[in-house]
Computed example of a mutant assay.
Amino acid sequence: MDRDAVLAWVESPLQLVGAAEWAEASGRTVPVAGRLTPQMSETADELVRRGARFGPMDPYMGIPWRLLAQHDHWLVGDGFSGQFRLAASVLRPRRVTFLDDGAHTHAFAATVLGDRPYSRPHVAERGATTRLAPLAFELIQRRARERRAGFFTAFDLGPHRESALGDRGFAVTRHRFAWTRATASPVTELGHRLVLGSARPVDGRMTLAHFVDWVRAIAAEGDVTYLPHRREPQEQRAAVRRIRGVHLHETTLPVELVLAGAEGRVDVFTLPSSTTTTLPLVTQGLDVRMFTAAQRPLGAVA
């Protein structure tokens, strides 16, 4: 095994963007094992078009055992994954770096510090996933003590948590989507009022009726372009499409890539999500304002 070989093991478009940012920041070419979905394929194609430092890109279903065994440094998109727990327990990588998995980044940092159980937020885990948790946790802690574990993140983990992670041996490297901004192309076809879709109804965190009411209230103040979340079912998209003043724009790219090249004033409406962290970074220097469900601006960067 090549002691310096690195592999990005990613499952979502945002994780794939994080891998591209890590590759650029480190100046290294990174092969990728990416989950086999249309969204991942199109995001990968776009990142390669922009010049991402990616090596061979292998789509997979399940655990890419052969690729993981050939690489001793894993860039991991989902530290809560049962597949990661199994692969880490069996193969025991020499180094592991955790990329952002949306807002779960905070929960995972708290997990490795022992401040919460090793379980995915809002999910009742059972079976092998639970039984593997202590084995994967031990591997992560051992690599941290050896100074071979860390986070590469756009999220502010807070000075107390970052200090605690450093004391445990974890390296914490912050990034601000500099490569994503630098490689963006101008985007003008989306209009000046955008509503970001959400998987909250799918996850049971709000009803579809309440979600539709939220979109309708925004559209009542002026026409909007709606960008669906990648996990929205057709039922939710159809309900939104029926709202007067809403123009649904289908895209499989993550919103961070879509809006990095926004031109002119753009108002973005979103429910609380990881985009309230990522988009202000991606749109730094642009005339973009973000609003929560309560219509309060989170900050304008001009």
Rank of each mutant, 00 (worst) to 15 (best):
I140F: 15
L113Y: 01
E146N: 11
E125D: 12
R148L: 05
E125V: 07
Q141T: 14
R116C: 00
E125L: 11
A110F: 06
T129Y: 01
A109F: 11
H122C: 08
V112H: 01
P117F: 14
T153C: 04
E138G: 11
S119Y: 02
G127D: 09
R116H: 01
D115Q: 07
E125Q: 15
P117K: 13
A128W: 08
A133P: 08
V112W: 00
P121L: 01
P121A: 04
R145N: 06
A109E: 12
L135W: 12
G150F: 11
F152I: 09
F152D: 09
L135H: 12
A109M: 13
E146F: 07
D115T: 00
R145W: 06
T153H: 04
A144R: 02
A136N: 06
G127V: 12
A144I: 03
T130Q: 12
P121Y: 01
G114F: 03
P134I: 04
R148H: 08
P134C: 07
T130P: 00
P134N: 08
F151T: 10
L113M: 14
T130V: 15
A149M: 10
R145K: 14
L135K: 08
P121I: 00
A107I: 07
L139K: 04
A133T: 07
T111K: 04
E138T: 13
R131W: 15
G150Y: 12
A144P: 04
P117V: 11
I140P: 00
E125K: 05
R120T: 05
R143S: 02
H122R: 15
P121R: 03
R145I: 02
R131M: 14
L113A: 12
R143D: 01
Q141C: 11
P134V: 10
R126K: 14
T130K: 13
T129N: 10
R143M: 02
A149L: 10
G127F: 09
S119P: 04
T130Y: 02
E146L: 13
G150L: 11
T153L: 04
L132A: 10
A107N: 11
R126E: 11
A144E: 02
E125P: 05
T111F: 10
R120C: 04
F151S: 06
T153E: 03
E125G: 07
R143I: 01
R142T: 14
A144L: 02
S119F: 04
F152C: 05
E146D: 15
R148P: 03
L139C: 07
P121Q: 04
Q141I: 02
A110C: 14
R142F: 03
F151C: 05
A110Y: 01
R116F: 00
Y118S: 06
